[in-house]
Design a protein around this nucleic acid. Structure first.
Lengths: 365, 365
DNA sequence: AATTAGCACTCGTACGTATCGAGTGCTAAC
DNA sequence: GTTAGCACTCGATACGTACGAGTGCTAATT
């Protein structure tokens, strides 16, 4: 009943929640009268006013100008996200939500299944479509990164003579990921040489992860093979090394960038332009992709509010990211980018179900 | 001296050109006084006014409101592009342009060379970078499509047993384009079967273009192979057929979408949103990709002005496209999307040099 | 002591009016 | 055929007023 951590007593919390909830819905500063009616707590606007003044002093809300209602500050949002979303989770307004959830999930699953059928060699398409789906579903912008394959095990390497001076190099990894390349060599290589090389490579490298094939191992292999087979082999090995090192080239898909125009606070032409640029260019998004550990929430979902985001151009946004897992520790990142006043609850939920589904898909393949 | 086609005498043409030129530069309606000073034709503003009134009657320019200057209509732009740009080409203001051109081209060439070094298996990266370059260079939005490989000849097909129930399928085409896929089959196939199949496929299909491998040929092959080798083979063939038919999946890269914010007439939030959406989604851009023939200009460069563009959301834009050639008739399309008042001359020139460079790169590989 | 009613005050928004100036069309003079 | 001159139009800009939502504070109420 009395003061809790952060000095917010029960009632202040309720009022803060009310402010944020209605602000999320309307996007406009919310006044004391509104709350006095909206909530079940039977309090007059005057009382609310006093409390809100306190909340403002404590930095949870702010009034854009003297005679306007209050809007949440980043601190307010943070409190809301950290403290209040779990409470809601356990709470009881799920009667109506259950049904909605079921419908939505059903639809999502359906959409997903369509793309599962198009199998593994189209991971790219799958991810792209997931991004699209997310964006359409949430009305925010979405991004998704291809999972790292660094931890993937090598299944099979094959060199094939293609014609004069050209050799086809194919690398197959766990999860049926394929990388292929045509290598041009200065001299011809004999059929026999290729066969031997194939054998050597497969016996030496098979089952290793890309990580384990460090430079030392590979260049050791290169010189060894070169000793036996000469200069051309060295060229081939060099190409192989390059291929393996480039195999992990991370890709990022985005969708729904234009959703930001649905939120006036982001529609201003320079803000929008910068935002869309970073979404288009993709490079800037890498800082959102998570390394193993820093999953701040237990379930690998992170919420960045306003300035907290590592991406400069998203200072006026909030970003929610989740990781999905391929198999052993290979992670990709999904992200939702929207206005500060995004529906955090819905986004977190959506992200969770999508993540689960992706996990399932990849585990099967 | 007298009336030419379209009823525009020499002087009217000069005035029209002046209007358009200064409007391209400023983006604001241009008045009679401005032109009277700007041009070398020694005419008072009053005379210009009369001429401009005529031009308005004929539909080449329009006044946004009573007391404003004139801006070009689509018809005006069209005339400008069709008639006047060749003239300028031959004209003499190239003294200053030459140097600028040289610098620019040099820079472009340099940038290109960097990416040529990264060779053919990165066509995608190359094209993406060309798009970026174009966008940065012109300050408009750019798009570029991967060339069709329908006309590409098959060089090599290879099936490899990968493990139980899995077969690696690799297709190599002219220009070292590779498509690969892992095929899952219900039963194991023997090593011997695979070798025979490899032989059969290569001897039958080698040198054919993807186009020539029509369904009839392939399914004939399928049943023939199936007869000899049973059910599993049929599955493999089926996968092959799919692969070949999907091999030509066209990709489109875009860049600089946010450049449109540099032009107020496109910055309005709904216009911008629609435009950026179609650039982001890419699907809508396919109508810009050209079939062989309809190169309206001799050199395969097409200029769409305003409503002329086949893309709905670009009604307020102009679009200039060019085709580049891989080798035998395989074409890709480059496009620039900007405001009606785009610098047509510069864009056409830039497009031409880029196209030439692309042609060169691909001819070498 | 906490809550509430009441009220003066603030400030953003909408709207009407006045002013300004760029540019036109037209007429008459050259 | 060209140009000077002038009345006129109309968007843009600035300013003043009215309105209303919402506040903060004080005094009354429970």
């Amino acid at each position: 009943m009395a003061e809790q951590d952060d000095g917010l007593d029960e009632r202040k919390q309720q009022i803060l929640k009310a402010v944020i909830d209605t602000y999320l819905a309307t996007g406009e500063p919310v006044g004391s009268r509104t709350i006095s009616k909206y909530t079940d707590l039977k309090l007059s606007s005057a009382t609310i006013r006093n409390e809100m003044a306190d909340l403002e002093d404590m930095g949870y809300v702010i009034a854009p100008h003297t005679s306007a209602g209050r809007i949440p500050t980043d601190k307010g949002y943070r409190f809301y996200v950290d403290r209040m979303m779990q409470i809601m989770k356990e709470n009881s307004d799920q009667i109506e939500k259950k049904q909605k959830d079921l419908d939505k999930r059903e639809k999502e699953l359906d959409d997903m299944r369509k793309f599962i059928s198009s199998k593994v060699d189209k991971v790219d398409d799958l991810l792209e479509n997931v991004a699209r789906l997310l964006a359409k579903d949430t009305n925010y912008a979405s991004m998704i990164s291809t999972p790292s394959v660094k931890g993937n095990k090598l299944k099979f390497i094959q060199l094939t003579k293609l014609g004069s001076g050209k050799i086809l190099l194919v690398i197959v990894m766990d999860g049926n990921l394929i990388r292929s390349k045509v290598v041009e060599v200065s001299e011809d290589i004999t059929q026999e040489q290729i066969l031997k090389l194939n054998l050597l490579l497969n016996t030496t490298l098979n089952g290793l992860t890309l990580e384990q094939m460090n430079l030392a191992l590979l260049s050791g292999l290169e010189s060894k093979a070169g000793q036996e087979h000469g200069q051309i082999i060295r060229e081939v090995m060099q190409a192989l090394i390059e291929s393996i090192q480039n195999a992990d080239h991370l890709q990022i898909y985005t969708s729904g960038a234009t959703n930001i125009f649905k939120y006036p606070e982001l529609s201003d032409s320079t803000t929008a332009s910068e935002l869309i640029s970073t979404l288009e260019e993709k490079k800037g998004l890498t800082s959102l992709i998570k390394s193993e550990k820093d999953s701040s929430t237990e379930d690998g979902i992170t919420v960045y509010i306003g300035d907290e985001t590592p991406v400069e151009s998203m200072k006026d946004c909030s970003v929610v990211t989740a990781t999905y897992e391929l198999h052993d520790g290979m992670k990709g990142t999904i992200g939702i980018i929207g206005p500060r006043r995004m529906d955090y609850q819905k986004v977190v939920e959506t992200l969770k179900t999508i993540r689960t589904q992706l996990d399932d898909i990849f585990k099967k393949s």
